[in-house]
Nucleic acid binder design. Sequence first.
DNA 1: CCATGACATAGATAGGTGTGAATATTTACA
DNA 2: TGTAAATATTCACACCTATCTATGTCATGG
Lengths: 116, 116
Amino acid sequence: MSLELTPVQTVACCSPLTREPLSAPEAEGIAPLLKALADPVRLRLMSLVASHEGGEACVCDLNDAFELSQPTISHHLKLLHEVGLLDREKRGVWVYYRARTEALTNLAALIGGQAK
Amino acid sequence: MSLELTPVQTVACCSPLTREPLSAPEAEGIAPLLKALADPVRLRLMSLVASHEGGEACVCDLNDAFELSQPTISHHLKLLHEVGLLDREKRGVWVYYRARTEALTNLAALIGGQAK
DNA sequence: CCATGACATAGATAGGTGTGAATATTTACA
DNA sequence: TGTAAATATTCACACCTATCTATGTCATGG
């Protein structure tokens, strides 16, 4: 087991941006999360998965929503999975991605949160 | 007056990510905002400015917080200003940046918001 | 009017990123 | 076993970006 934290694990432990200056290590832990979201395709992917019924969607559904090659979608999904924004589950031939809503909630609290 | 909206103007008009799928134009409007935040230096700059007394800070203060050249900091500040996250005001020789907290609030609502 | 200090801009460069084509892997099923 | 379908991986490439150095602009004080 590694001591490395995924960005999603890092984000939960900081007071909001506007409360006190973010330390350099904190900032470097959080930036990858924002980077993962900071792409139109990945934003839509997150939104598609999160708003999909059951909170999950299979790759086949997602591919159809874009005019991009299947490997490109797969690449973006992998990125979102690696930072901890999407969970992955293989069921038969299909792979289902599920949004980690508590990760989004934590991130939102960090960006716009008022309280400690 | 242009019809182009800054990312900050775009973000205020969408329901949360998890509520319904983001449209492609919406996603392309919002991504630049996240991109602007998705850098450790800019995250710390935003945090420094937002948490500074009076909600503003002059560039001289900010430069000292990093081991980066002054032009590099200036570059990052410009980026944050262009997307609408920072306001800029010149007073004498000094330039003061001020965080647009309502922009952060809107962005947070979009990412982690539960309600419409 | 000139020198100095605060900040911005321009140009250059190394490294990162989004994309597609080709290919591999894995599962289901005949 | 072998074929087809769903998804991932590899490789290559054009474009973007974070940074620095050098230089420019602008306001202040002598």
